[in-house]
Design a protein around this nucleic acid. Structure first.
Lengths: 141, 141
DNA sequence: AACAACTGTAATTGATATTATTACAGTAAT
DNA sequence: ATTACTGTAATAATATCAATTACAGTTGTT
């Protein structure tokens, strides 16, 4: 799994947790434990997909543009990491004269597409809001 | 996803396809398109998990030790790549005094455990035998 | 107008993970 | 003995991932 997906989810949850719903890339980066440039790259992608609004300039930063309970991890997954399940490495060779070697790449690809859908439907059941609930539940314990 | 999982599945399917159910690491490697050492490492793991028998020495190689229709991709996944879904990169910091930053790693981990189970149950529905059927179906088309 | 605090993005470097290669000891058939 | 294999460690080559540096553009503040 793509680690940008993790950063994206973490960032959205953090925004949802903020009373004013806002944070700068530096604040997010320090909370996530990475550098602001990486955060900005991820947030830029989230903006393009309508998850957050951006305000440049002094006092700017990011703000959630949807209800936390309306955003599922599947939405985020589709935006950030869709298809990332299949390994880049590819098995077999289409030019092979063996039944197995020549068709494995295609069949394997189909298997991973199915796996990706399965994953997506699992992520459908988790929202940014429910992630926040889990966090508070964990903190209470 | 681990590419060794792909090599393992490919190798098992190839063995299932062979009339005598046998192949050497070199034959497998050329079919998979990788080098024999890598194949032997993967096969060594499959042997330890009871999927294949090994015969060393001249004329040796690997042979399936279970019925192709009895071996699911979930079995292979558990042996080769269990837990590989979660990215190695970890978000947040347990020492943080923020609710979100300090508990995110745990919650994220739980999410990925669930995803892993979901994946596993999907792989449960695919066997080495059914992979072979898909290949022949594809070749016929 | 000048400054400070931001985002957006490209380019570079450094770290880490993945894959291929080389080498060689051990085993079994001929 | 020789040949054809597996098992495994060590090394080298390559690709991927993450952090850093640099700087242009935007906006609020004084």
């Amino acid at each position: 799994m793509n680690s940008e997906f993790v950063i994206a989810v973490h960032s959205l949850v953090l925004l949802a947790h903020r009373p004013d719903g806002m944070a700068s890339s530096e604040e997010i980066a320090s909370n996530v434990c990475t550098n602001p440039v990486r955060v900005r790259k991820v947030m830029s992608c989230l903006r393009k997909n309508g998850f957050v609004d951006t305000r440049e300039g002094s006092g700017g930063g990011y703000r959630l543009s949807q209800e936390p309970s309306e955003v599922t991890l599947a939405d985020v997954y589709r935006a950030m990491a869709s298809g990332s399940l299949a390994p880049s490495w590819c098995s077999g060779d289409p030019e092979s004269d063996c039944l197995v070697g020549s068709n494995m790449a295609d069949v394997m690809n189909a298997v991973f597409c199915g796996a990706d859908q399965q994953l997506e439907s699992y992520f459908e059941s988790i929202t940014i809001g429910s992630m926040l609930s889990r966090l508070t539940a964990k903190a209470r314990a």
